[in-house]
Computed example of a mutant assay.
Amino acid sequence: MEYTSGAASWQKALRRAVVALLPRKRRQRRPGWSIGVPLIAAAAGLLFTTTATTASGTALREDRRPQLTQLIEDRREQVAAGERQAARLRAEVESSTADLADSDEPIRDQRDRAAVNRQSAGFTALTGAGVTVELNDAPRLPEQGLPKGASNDDLVVHQQDVQAVVNALWAGGAEAMSIMNVRVLATSAVRCVGNTLLLHGRVYSPPFKIVAIGDPAALQQGLAASEGVRVFKGVVKDFHLGYQETVSTVTVPAFEDSTALRAATVPR
């Protein structure tokens, strides 16, 4: 046991009291990033593992445009093959009908009656004097920019522009008509998807060529009287759109697609 003097004991007691009264230094807390870094690393590892599993050895951000282009070409070839098959079957039906007509009078009568209406229905090709109208988009010149006061919509041919020309030619007495070398019938519908033309399930890009057989003077008069055509021709110069009107001997092909009707109304 150690004995101390009274003076030393009082000094120790005083020193302890002073230390007790002084503010204690807080314990330093661990900064937040020291905890967040391991969590972020764990999340990144989980993400990389999930990506590798999903990709299965392939590139997730690979450019798929070549595959899309090939898919479109494959579908076009399938459509073309279907059209060739349909044409072959139609020829077989006509040949069989002709064979039966030689020995079956009712079939012969129906065939002759149908033959009378084939031309007016659009199933025979026609050649004669007529008018050709060609509509085209404005040329895209990035270095020149858009014409003053024009938008992108002003630089393309729209559905109403094609319809205006078609209706004007019918009003001018057209006997037969084709668009992009496809015969136009009473059931034909002119629609535009973007700056492309959709006609009988096929898509066409500009320039759009419309051919009509009839009296050229009357056809041109019909075009001149059409408000829609006048509006289009009025902006041709300002927006550099294409409009060409030609008189010549033209040929309108026969309609070769399906003639099945999805709906019809009996006239009263």
Score class of each variant (00 low, 15 high):
Asn195Met: 11
Asn195Gly: 05
Asn195Asp: 15
Asn195Cys: 01
Asn195Gln: 14
Thr196Val: 12
Thr196Trp: 04
Thr196Cys: 10
Leu198Thr: 01
Leu199Ala: 14
Leu199Cys: 05
Leu199Tyr: 06
His200Val: 03
His200Asp: 15
Gly201Pro: 06
Gly201Gln: 08
Val203Lys: 12
Val203Gly: 10
Val203Leu: 14
Tyr204Asp: 11
Tyr204Gln: 10
Ser205Gln: 13
Pro206Cys: 12
Pro206His: 00
Pro207Lys: 01
Pro207Glu: 02
Phe208Ser: 00
Phe208Val: 07
Lys209Leu: 09
Ile210Met: 06
Ile210Asn: 05
Val211Leu: 05
Val211Ser: 12
Val211Met: 07
Val211Glu: 13
Ala212Tyr: 09
Ala212Ser: 07
Ala212His: 01
Ala212Cys: 13
Ile213Thr: 03
Ile213Tyr: 08
Ile213Trp: 10
Gly214Cys: 09
Gly214Leu: 13
Asp215Tyr: 10
Asp215Val: 02
Ala217Pro: 02
Ala217Arg: 13
Ala217His: 09
Ala218Ser: 15
Ala218Val: 08
Ala218Asp: 09
Ala218Met: 10
Gln220Pro: 03
Gln220Asp: 09
Gln221Pro: 04
Gln221Asn: 15
Gln221Ile: 03
Gly222Gln: 10
Gly222Leu: 04
Gly222Ile: 07
Leu223Glu: 09
Leu223Tyr: 04
Leu223Cys: 12
Ala224Pro: 14
Ala224Asp: 15
Ala225Lys: 15
Ala225Glu: 14
Ala225Pro: 08
Ala225Ile: 07
Ser226Phe: 03
Glu227Phe: 04
Gly228Ala: 10
Arg230Lys: 15
Arg230Ser: 14
Arg230Leu: 14
Arg230Pro: 13
Arg230Asp: 13
Val231Phe: 10
Phe232His: 07
Phe232Gly: 02
Gly234Thr: 06
Val235Lys: 13
Val235Trp: 03
Val236Ile: 12
Val236Tyr: 03
Lys237Val: 04
Lys237Arg: 11
Lys237Ile: 02
Lys237Ala: 15
Asp238Val: 06
Asp238Lys: 12
Phe239Asn: 06
His240Asn: 08
His240Glu: 11
His240Tyr: 12
His240Cys: 04
Leu241Ile: 06
Leu241Met: 00
Leu241Cys: 03
Leu241Thr: 11
Leu241Ser: 05
Gly242Gln: 03
Gly242Asp: 11
Gly242Ile: 07
Tyr243His: 09
Gln244Thr: 14
Gln244Phe: 05
Gln244Lys: 11
Thr246Glu: 14
Val247Gln: 11
Val247Met: 04
Val247Leu: 01
Ser248Leu: 11
Ser248Asn: 10
Ser248Phe: 08
Ser248Met: 12
Thr249Ile: 07
Thr249Met: 12
Thr249Ser: 13
Val250Asp: 02
Val250Asn: 08
Val250Cys: 03
Val250Tyr: 01
Val250Gln: 14
Thr251Met: 08
Val252Ser: 09
Pro253Arg: 01
Pro253Phe: 04
Pro253His: 03
Phe255Asp: 01
Phe255Ala: 04
Glu256Ser: 15
Asp257Trp: 05
Asp257Cys: 00
Ser258Glu: 11
Ser258Trp: 08
Ser258Cys: 02
